[in-house]
Write a protein that binds this DNA or RNA. Structure first.
Lengths: 400, 400
DNA sequence: TTGAAAGCGCTACCAC
DNA sequence: GTGGTAGCGCTTTCAA
């Protein structure tokens, strides 16, 4: 499908006349041709300000159900029921209403519907903290893809909410629910005990947690078995590669995932049947912290054979540090990560890791949330999805 | 040291705790959601279904403005104006209303407010296509971070909408606006002429486009100068490194960015004052297409000195192909990309690229959209943000 | 089989 | 200053 074209060009001197090799910055207003009153005249809100409810082409006006009903010559309630395919309405009327609805371009007003129904049809994904640190992570991107897929399948809108300010009165994402902007929320909070999450759960708002929240056993949640994942990595290092002097770079230990991964690592070493030595350096899941942690490890544990970082970004940081010391991966030291959101695949060598199925988690979380909102799922459940051990080159050839 | 339970090349672990109640698994059931009446049965909002409107601790009930007013002993309208800090209300009353509001945990109902106001306070980000191909791209993640920041600053909610089905009646994202789920939309459509975008713009809905839409000169847009960016890369290769036999791997030529980058490349070569030879291979912005395109290039243009891919992912694909032939980067062949969303930083060697400020684009787009919604910005503008040439190792040492 | 009307929560416009 | 009231668009009950 990649049709290669070929065209050759030879060009003679023309001095570089543009300076755009430098970041050129400016706000360039182009095209000033617009009808001046256009921006204002089309405000549809004010006193039923439609112009031509008869004209099918008038897409600008807000078409209400009443307009459809009037066009057909039935009452508003009949039109409503017709569109809902209510059995009490005759087929002829339904057909007429549907036709008029399509012709006029009727789209139900979500506010009116939500107000009447007492709840929104949207669901929310809420993430703690502001901007980059959490939200800008590939994890959420994958999660969002999954949630979106499920929401689309149910014709629901998706509201994304972050917590802009820690102490800004009611938490932003609690507002989303209480204001009924969304019927329920998927919460992907990393912190081990986010008080806002507690409140939402306590308030019996429809909430699905992504991850493990040990102190909230009655809340619905979706996750993977982090302990088992870390254990799989540890066993891979010990049993498959015969490495016994291993350092772990954990995440911050007020994050449940960090705790779980560390625990899985330790437990697997203890149960390996081999005499293992391990050490711990605590990072914060960032690449830089991984670099610093690796520095500590390499300084303090001279004969370390492997480093297992609690996520790929820290593993990459560790890779940079290891490499800067002239050590080779995997010949001199093995390296493993966790998450598989992209980083570990791109590095050279690729980093052996645990694949976290974030998209599936998002999709499953959304499915559960919809059940919760519908009242279908009676009791909170903890859904555990499978993970995968992805073996790349950073631990050596996979012989043993 | 039992070698039992050895991890195979790709080993799938199952979490121990499977859901007991349902046959759920990693296979997510596609929502076949019938509007059963069970949904209505437990609906709390029904007929003013609060239990204890007196108890301050009752967080479950929906607290309305009327409740606040009653608690204070004023009318609903007074309470409304008090919370809006209307000058007609006495300070004493305001204080009382605010206190009661906080005590009862009052949060305004967004549906009621939106219905009354005639428009939502949310804004939407709409992306074409479903799931992975477009939405799952780091570009959107960065864009979203920027949009979220701006939306948070204005206390607006953010609706994310994708187009699940090409021909599903009205496009999903047109519904978002027409249903007034959002007051305006930021559209990041890659296609050169998305009919839905045309319709939204024609309908004078508040829309800000991200990118360049040559056929929609009257619509507000935000972007960078893609032509100049590609030209900067080309000049870097020609002038700084003295390379004159260069291949370009473009994106699909029905994408404006692909066209612009190709044009910038060609123009810069033509204006370089050097005798340059170039060739073109068309990809689709995917890593795999980059690999295939590089294969074509290397097969057909034996003495190629540099490859400039229209994005980093294709550049990475090209890197894999180049490497598989035993060629070295940059010694045997130079490589450049475009975007700088992460890929180009992680590879070894790092790929020289153009940094696209996606977060700033998102933030700016949102700011413009809010102006548009408020009617503040009278005329459409095309805002151009600066980019940066990021020089890494893939073109050789930067000796000029 | 359909129409009329009530009311979801909110704000703006009147009177007082 | 403040209270009553209308009405945004929708669904649903009750009448006809």
């Amino acid at each position: 499908m990649t049709a290669a074209e070929r065209d050759e060009h030879r060009d003679e001197h023309r001095g570089p006349d543009r300076d755009a090799s430098r970041p050129d910055s400016n706000v360039v207003p182009l095209g000033r041709d617009t009808p001046a009153e256009g921006a204002d005249a089309n405000r549809p809100g004010g006193g039923r300000g439609r112009r031509r409810p008869t004209a099918a082409a008038d897409k600008r006006a807000t078409v209400t159900l009443k307009d459809v009903a009037t066009a057909v010559g039935v009452s508003q309630s009949a039109a409503s029921m017709a569109l809902a395919d209510h059995p009490r309405i005759s087929e002829a009327t339904k057909e007429a209403v549907r036709a008029a609805s399509a012709r006029l371009g009727y789209v139900p007003n979500s506010a009116g519907r939500a107000l009447r129904a007492g709840r929104s049809t949207s669901i929310a994904v809420v993430v703690p903290q502001t901007g980059q640190h959490v939200f800008g992570h590939p994890y959420f991107m994958h999660l969002l893809v999954g949630v979106t897929a499920e929401a689309n399948a149910r014709d629901a809108a998706l509201v994304v909410s972050t917590n802009p300010d820690e102490s800004h009165g009611v938490a932003a994402y609690e507002r989303v629910l209480r204001s009924q902007a969304a019927a329920g929320a998927i919460v992907a909070s990393a912190s081990i005990s986010d008080p806002n999450v507690n409140r939402m759960v306590d308030a019996a708002l429809p909430v699905v947690l992504v991850g493990r929240f040990v102190h909230l056993p009655h809340a619905a949640s979706v996750g993977i078995d982090e302990v088992a994942g870390a254990a799989a990595i540890a066993r891979h290092l010990v049993q498959d590669h015969g490495l016994t002097r291993i350092a772990h770079i954990s995440g911050p230990l007020n994050h449940q995932t960090a705790v779980d991964r560390y625990e899985g690592f330790r437990t697997a070493l203890a149960e390996s049947g081999r005499q293992c030595t391990h050490t711990l350096a605590v990072g914060d899941f960032s690449e830089e912290s991984g670099m610093l942690a690796a520095r500590q490890v390499l300084d303090s544990m001279s004969d370390v054979q492997a480093i297992f970082a609690a996520n790929d970004e820290m593993a990459y940081g560790a890779m940079l540090e290891i490499r800067s010391r002239g050590l080779r991966i995997p010949e001199d030291i093995a390296l493993a990560g966790y998450d598989d959101f992209g980083v570990s695949r791109l590095t050279t060598p690729g980093i052996t890791t645990i694949h976290v199925p974030a998209e599936a988690l998002g999709r499953q979380a959304a499915a559960i949330l919809f059940d919760l909102v519908d009242g279908t799922t009676p009791d909170p459940v903890h859904t555990v999805l499978p993970f995968e051990l992805v073996i790349r080159e950073s631990c050596g050839s996979h012989t043993a």
